[in-house]
Design a binder for these strands. Structure first.
Lengths: 220, 220
DNA sequence: AACTTTATTTAGTCTTATCTAAATATTATT
DNA sequence: AATAATATTTAGATAAGACTAAATAAAGTT
């Protein structure tokens, strides 16, 4: 089955929301993430239900079927592989990657995406630390420790970021942060939680608000 | 101005046809290349005319304005850069490249395309020998000698192909032909024009029908 | 339990891009 | 020049995806 660009975005939004909450996805929540009216969403839910991509009961919200989830995972794979390409091969800045990948993920060819995967060396994570499903849809979950949980004197590797808004990404790249780097916590301000870190031989400070969007894996 | 996917295809078709004929493009010709009905084409021509992308007089056909031509050339640039990427970086076969590039050319970001250009090393020609416009829209025309004009004993470089149907491309790649290769004409059959060539130390034969789709540049 | 608020769906429109059939221009032919 | 053939446009419909406003269902509150 061939999905339209728009149908794909609905499927993607459904997977995103139900992965977060674990529950049925409500019409309003989906409308909010897609920036559409609830009425439009209702129409599309009926359509996707007729195509067996979701289970949908009026007033009860929707959830992807197994088949729908397969489609969504394939989109995730495409999106994340393109992100790797944009960031690593083309040197496009962190904060510009997301918008472009959102267009590229709709390119249909499976041949293309498998060749891209091979070209990139079958990466397991994208530049934001999100796992990349393989051609069979399998992927490894990433570590989920927050930078705010790091203890003073301890060293860790930055493995991902939770937020993706371009201003946030710009902020932290200006501080010199990127995925794969090693950092050591020097101190945490007891009043507002501001962190002082050693990163790439330089001392930097990060507000608690920012630090809780950053994921780490402790070394050792 | 932002063009829709569909508008872009019309602009592309218009440039293609008027470059070939040098004349105004007729509704029917455009309908044939886009595989649409003439009625649909008439509607779109009115729309593009209102946007000042074409000059259009009912019953007299259409032609791109300077602005329209700029858009079309930008599409050509994107299409051909993606072709280089698909063929050279991803090792996708000649005959599969065109279809994928036709989807990729609609991705909007200029940032993306300029980074792609740099990544590929600012190529001047695509894998079919077509010139690639630079960011300012300038490009060098390619040599236009046909392989059928080559004299026996003379050596030349294959610089392009005129046809792009996937069966043709598959046929010649199976014979071992690709752009950039050197070949020497051994003989031409006086009855049906079949050519015998020395290519990569092997002797191959090509029908006249096929040979006249291949472009060469003589060496020396 | 009745009422209020919130969420969701239905009804009716709009836009874009397509189509077929009918009407009208243009071009070619006798 | 009149007629036949061809090309193009107009008219009217359709499908996808969006919207607003109105109706209805579900959840929350007194």
């Amino acid at each position: 089955m061939e999905l339209s660009h728009v149908e794909e975005n609905y499927i993607k939004g459904l997977q995103h929301l139900s992965t977060q909450s674990g529950k049925q996805v409500s019409t309003n929540d989906l409308a909010a993430t897609l920036r559409n009216s609830a009425a439009s969403v209702t129409d599309m839910l009926k359509k996707l239900s007729k195509k067996s991509l979701i289970n949908y009961e009026p007033y009860q919200g929707a959830r992807l079927t197994e088949q729908g989830n397969k489609f969504a995972t394939r989109l995730l794979r495409k999106n994340r592989l393109w992100k790797v390409f944009l960031y690593q091969s083309l040197n496009i800045r962190w904060e510009d990657v997301r918008e472009i990948a959102e267009e590229l993920e709709h390119i249909k060819s499976d041949l293309l995406i498998d060749h891209l995967d091979a070209f990139l060396g079958y990466p397991k994570f994208d530049p934001f630390g999100e796992p990349i499903p393989n051609a069979q849809g399998k992927y490894t979950l990433r570590a989920q420790t927050l930078l705010t949980e790091l203890r003073p004197g301890i060293t860790a590797i930055i493995v991902g970021v939770k937020a993706t808004e371009s201003n946030f990404l710009k902020h932290i790249s200006e501080k010199g942060i990127s995925v794969g780097q090693t950092c050591t916590l020097i101190s945490r301000d007891p009043y507002d939680g501001t962190l002082t870190l050693l990163l790439d031989r330089k001392e930097i400070t990060l507000s608690g608000q920012v630090a809780k969007q950053i994921l780490i894996k402790s070394t050792g």
